[in-house]
Design a binder for these strands. Sequence first.
DNA 1: AACGCAGTTGCGAATGAATTGCGATAAGGC
DNA 2: GCCTTATCGCAATTCATTCGCAACTGCGTT
Lengths: 151, 151
Amino acid sequence: MKGIDQRVTEFEHQLRKAGLRMTQQRRLILRVLAEADDHPDAKGIFTRAFVHDPTLSLSTVYRTMKLLETQGAIERHAFEDGVSRYEHADQAHHDHLIDIETGKVIEFSSPEIEELQAKIAAKLGYEIVRHKLELYGRKLGGKTRRRRPGA
Amino acid sequence: MKGIDQRVTEFEHQLRKAGLRMTQQRRLILRVLAEADDHPDAKGIFTRAFVHDPTLSLSTVYRTMKLLETQGAIERHAFEDGVSRYEHADQAHHDHLIDIETGKVIEFSSPEIEELQAKIAAKLGYEIVRHKLELYGRKLGGKTRRRRPGA
DNA sequence: AACGCAGTTGCGAATGAATTGCGATAAGGC
DNA sequence: GCCTTATCGCAATTCATTCGCAACTGCGTT
């Protein structure tokens, strides 16, 4: 995993290049995002950041999320709960499987599916710019399926 | 294609069974939906219906959409424009390709992708309850690709 | 054909996520 | 350190959707 500080520094350069500034607030929000291993929404990010800086405002979080998104530093998702959820974008593309009972989000990726998508789009006369694939499911079997120690 | 009147009647029976009523408003909205070949949002449905009954209110459209959805008569989609869009659900399952330039929605289905999805979910210990696949793309080639008269 | 009662409606107010206007503040090039 | 201007905090605003409530209307019953 890429270091958090490194990621912050990279983004700072990116901002500078665009004539923008690296502020305390942005640094803090970036840190919160980098430390998150889930997909928090704006309020969630605000809450976590607020602990470290009680002067931070929710508007700033929203503004920063929009900025980060247009800069390509994060991805915004709209799952079925109606709010926008975010995750940092320095990792490889992946899709999501959402546990409809717990709301837990599991990431996965499938080159085969991507390939089929491209093929379908091409057949319809389109090229895919981006896509969204969300699977909503429930855990199999009463007892949690346990992996065999070697499989 | 199933007749509109037939569809309305079917739904009326479905309502009766649930102790609900077939009202003028519901009949009208149902008709508008059945005649729509696109994916209108609440306001769009309201506008089309309002022509036939200027006493109709937007709240009623929203309420009816929710009812129709829980009754399984329509499907609700949340594409990237932030509003809920609807389509009647009497047809086979399909996914959507959205033209990012025109907003046009094209329907398609791919058993191969569905199969892969199930396989992936199973590998993660899940069974899929439903899924959402949206492709966002732009039309290929400067000139509109024309189908050969026989292909 | 009239009755009655619960399901429905229209209206306006309320909600909640996200955005914005504005005066105050602070980043960072000089 | 200074100055320009991007950014911030706050309150007010927007926009989709929902809700409260009194009036109304399906529709099974008499």
